[in-house]
Nucleic acid binder design. Structure first.
Length: 276
DNA sequence: CGCATTCCCTGGGTGC
DNA sequence: TGCACCCAGGGAATGC
């Protein structure tokens, strides 16, 4: 499941593979992927356009072409593949035929991924409208400070884990890395959000940077699946708590609970609940 | 308003 | 082997 490091890896891999490539044809097989324009509009707007750059905002990929911008969110299982002009397989939902006779294919077994297309707009414009409008700072951004978090979180009473999954507050963390960050910060996932101390918030920021930096360096985490052209990450070998049985710290059994409907791993001894 | 729940999907796992 | 069932989850929509 792609989180920030996986999307960063996909972005960098795709940049090597498709920048400068011109789109000859587009085939949308599963139509619900395209959100904000008709399929006809999507096709016609993309044909003849060349990939100029690829950016990332949170977990969104932003493809910059001549006059259009394509926004892509991989959700759970979205992947891109570069192939020759061969038969379309079962889970390929959008096929971009390129002039070099290669094809760029969006593959998504659960069909949760979405795409948006913008015509004659620049990146600054689309950052001001949905769905990018409410994407919060990334852990690396200088604006993400203890003071900022203190203010944003002061009225939130739900579990801190649910808050960290909310992309409008901090962007880029998903289910895997939130568990890791909370473990590294010795914070219980069910801790009430607005009861966290400044020191706890500081730990969350620092450990978010640490875990994402390391995951990016290792090309992301491959638990279920994510890849471009079969390239997958190695961070799963570095996980401390998510999907683990034994705490690497105190060697007690890792607990699995549900928080906001999400499978959540923690060590009760290392992540004590403080107040509430 | 905040928060919990439901929904979208399909492959993989389980039990009979 | 086949079949019914449940589970995984990011984010939007819905309900309280």
């Amino acid at each position: 499941m792609p989180e920030l490091p996986e999307v960063e890896t996909v972005k960098n891999t795709l940049k090597r593979l498709i920048l400068g490539e011109k789109i000859k044809d587009v085939n949308v097989i599963y139509q619900r992927i395209v959100q904000n324009v008709t399929i006809e509009d999507f096709r016609e707007s993309l044909i003849g356009q060349t990939f100029k750059d690829i950016l990332r905002r949170g977990k969104y990929l932003i493809f910059i072409l001549d006059n259009v911008i394509l926004l892509s969110h991989l959700r759970m299982e979205g992947k891109y593949f570069i192939k020759k002009d061969e038969e379309v397989t079962k889970h390929e939902h959008v096929i971009f035929k390129l002039e070099s006779n290669k094809t760029l294919r969006y593959h998504d077994t659960r069909k949760f991924g979405v795409m948006y297309l913008y015509k004659n707009k620049n990146v600054e414009d689309i950052l001001k409208e949905a769905p990018l409008l409410n994407i919060g700072y990334e852990p690396f951004d200088n604006e993400l400070t203890v003071d900022y978090l203190k203010e944003r979180l002061k009225k939130i009473t739900k579990p801190i884990k649910s808050t960290l999954l909310d992309q409008s507050i901090i962007s880029g963390l998903g289910n895997i890395y939130v568990d890791e960050v909370l473990f590294m910060s010795n914070i219980h996932p069910l801790e009430k959000t607005n009861s966290l101390s400044n020191q706890a918030l500081e730990s969350i920021i620092i450990n978010s940077q640490r875990v994402l930096d390391k995951a990016i360096a290792l090309g992301g985490t491959t638990i279920h699946s994510f890849s471009v052209d079969g390239i997958s990450g190695k961070f799963q070998n570095e996980l401390l708590v998510h999907t683990k049985d034994i705490c690497p710290n105190c060697h007690k059994k890792i607990l699995k609970i549900r928080v906001g409907g999400r499978g959540t791993y923690l060590c009760e001894d290392c992540q004590k609940r403080m107040g509430d």
